[in-house]
Every structure is written in structure tokens, then in C-alpha cells.
């Protein structure tokens, strides 16, 4: 389970960050995760393209990811994606409709990153720890 690093938000995080087994990275800071989930960073340090999967904006796990780990509100993230897409800077992440679809996508696509409730038991994906900034 990941532990949140901000003293002001010192509480148990209810989300775990997961990636496809092809991803070698096992630790990222909130700032690095923000850049990945806001679609600014598009490849892993190995050069492998990143494929970002997210749940719907209203999904509780997505809201927890934004507030607890990325330190931003879901509407901010949505506005950032809109700005990237309509000004040529980037693309939207792939929005999946359920946690089952998230799990299947993370297993299927090389370079994929996503998240699931911390209580989910996963054995065959890369677990990414959230480290201090």
C-alpha cells in the first residue's frame, strides 16, 4: 500500500498506482505522477511510451487519486486535459468504465499505468510506490 507524503494530508491512501509488468519503474513522486496523469510525460525513462488509463471523473477512486496522491481536484485535471487536447500539446488518457476494465487494460497494454482501490489484491502488475517529492 502506498503512503501519502504530504504532512497536511497525512492519512491512509485508499488508492494504489499500478502499471503493466513491462514497466520497470517502481517509485514515483506526486509531481512525477501529476505529469504522467496530466499527459505531459509521455514515455517511461526506458523510452517505452506511457499509456494512461483513468476512471470516470465522478468515480470515487479517481477522486481519491486526484485529491490524495496528485494533490489536485478532479475538475483541474479535466481542464488540463482539455487544454492539452485543444491546443495541440497532447491527448486525453483512455477513460475506462469500470475497475474490471482498468485491470484488464493494465494487464493487456505494455507501458500502461492506472490505479485501483488499495484494497484490491493484485499479483501480476507492477506496484508503483509514491515517494517523497
Amino acid at each position: 500500500m502506498c503512503l501519502l507524503i504530504s504532512p497536511s494530508h497525512a492519512q491512509e491512501v485508499q488508492v494504489k498506482i499500478l502499471a503493466n509488468p513491462s514497466v520497470n519503474t517502481t517509485e514515483l513522486t506526486p509531481g512525477q505522477l501529476r505529469r504522467i496523469f496530466s499527459m505531459r510525460q509521455t514515455s517511461w525513462p526506458s523510452g517505452q511510451p506511457i499509456r494512461v488509463f483513468v476512471l470516470d471523473n465522478q468515480n470515487q477512486t479517481h477522486q481519491q487519486l486526484c485529491k490524495q496522491i496528485l494533490q489536485m481536484f478532479p475538475y483541474q485535471m479535466e481542464k488540463l486535459w482539455d487544454k492539452l487536447v485543444y491546443s495541440g500539446l497532447g491527448d486525453y488518457p483512455t477513460i475506462v468504465s469500470s475497475e474490471d476494465e482498468m485491470l484488464a487494460s493494465l494487464k493487456r497494454y505494455p507501458g500502461a499505468i492506472g490505479y485501483l482501490p488499495a484494497s484490491t489484491s493484485i499479483s501480476d502488475l507492477t506496484n508503483i510506490e509514491v515517494s517523497r517529492e
Binding site: S43, K83, S87, G88
Partner: peptide, 25 residues
């Protein structure tokens, strides 16, 4: 440059004004 700390991109062509809050969109 596309590392964990730095991202540097060069755009050539007709690019946007990214400099103000709402200028790019």
C-alpha cells in the same frame, strides 16, 4: 528532452500562444 524531471519540446510551424491563462484555447 523527456526525463522524470525535465520535458523540453520544440514546435515548428503555426504554434499557439501558451503564455496567458486562456490564450491557447
Amino acid at each position: 528532452l523527456n526525463t522524470e524531471k525535465w520535458h523540453v519540446n520544440l514546435q515548428l510551424g503555426r504554434n499557439k500562444n501558451y503564455q496567458w491563462l486562456y490564450s491557447s484555447t
